[in-house]
Design a protein around this nucleic acid. Sequence first.
DNA 1: AATAAAATATGATATTTGTCATACAACTTC
DNA 2: GAAGTTGTATGACAAATATCATATTTTATT
Lengths: 226, 226
Amino acid sequence: MSKCEQCIVREFSSLKALNKEELLKIADCKSSYTIKKGEPIFTEGENVNGIFCIKDGVCKLTKLSANGNDQIVKLISKGELLGQRSMISDEPVNLSAVALEDMEVCFIPKTEIMGLFNQNNQFSMNMMRAICGDLKEADEHLVTMAQKSVKQRLAETLVYLQDTFGINPDNSLKVKLSREELAGMVGTATESCIRLLSEFNKLGVIELSGKKITITNKAQLLKAAN
Amino acid sequence: MSKCEQCIVREFSSLKALNKEELLKIADCKSSYTIKKGEPIFTEGENVNGIFCIKDGVCKLTKLSANGNDQIVKLISKGELLGQRSMISDEPVNLSAVALEDMEVCFIPKTEIMGLFNQNNQFSMNMMRAICGDLKEADEHLVTMAQKSVKQRLAETLVYLQDTFGINPDNSLKVKLSREELAGMVGTATESCIRLLSEFNKLGVIELSGKKITITNKAQLLKAAN
DNA sequence: AATAAAATATGATATTTGTCATACAACTTC
DNA sequence: GAAGTTGTATGACAAATATCATATTTTATT
């Protein structure tokens, strides 16, 4: 069992408020998992009863819509927590989490976290602030979905992916999403997504090479979307 | 200054965890306001530094989109709190709140609430749970915006308004929204909203009479939207 | 009550987006 | 390496939605 105390990623989440003693206690009751690309961490409707701490890798949070499409609500990566919402509300999870690449995650049971909420006020405030941040983000995302065109949303999504997850040595986007997944982020049909990528490609603002997407002119890409 | 202890609406929010003593302290530092229909409680970007408790009336939470449209993110009514998100994050508010009818609200300053977070764990847990509920709602709303047609969204919005805010003696929706506001909830152009209302009216599933909207056949309305 | 202003309604039309069909490319699997 | 499977690409078309113009109704103002 690895020591939480020496885990760097805890510094990036609400867990940073915990002291040595508390971390030792967590290390004692946590379990570690390896999740292969494409595998779920949890699925909509499941009872999770704890939170996951992402040690490495990226996953998508999706919700199945009535029309059968998987809408990607958010991407979560190294250092972030998963499952707080449902743990605190004491409800099944409302979203599915599926690995986009091989992942390392730790699971901390609910009882442990709840105990910490009681004894460490800084920790609960951190958690509250993080959830408030998620809520703000969700509201902004909502307005984007409601008010912007598919073309704008696609362009902004591409820029978001680059700014958030970075690029490979060849400048292509690091996170690899299928066209279907990209469409699921943007909230459009896969064919429409492909068509618009083609269009951006022809305009010379992005470059397509197999699954690889490279933004060659960020400013122009955003401009072209308007 | 009225007594929070005797205010019924506090029973409907996180404030219900507070004891007599704590309520007396709040009553002592709160301020009460009357907000006329159409007036703002606060505006996007403002520093609020506290929370509002809605004693009576309904308001809309809106966000101005880049295209100049006001998207209505949520409606808030009697018994609910307002401004927690920005208070906890220690940021300006990200949404505007505007009264849809005459309102009675109380303002409780941030220092007071923060003090209560420290001394009353049940209160902070209530608040956290409420915000988690908002987050879940926002995610679901987001998926609806991304995946459903305008017609579906309008039908669901009408049903939501009826189920949440009730009907007048003549069966018309109690909350009164202009066509523009309704379009702002649905996330569409005002003309499209009007056109679809017309269509529902011709189908006989709703009835229009001036600004009044009456759902005459809820099941059929939802069915017609698919 | 008369007038102006705002909100609602509807037609005509352009644009956006989705759907279905099909082609082609890339990747597995045997 | 052939056959099948999956993912990507594109055309043709239909449906949904936005936009602009204008009429009509409602509400506010004098």
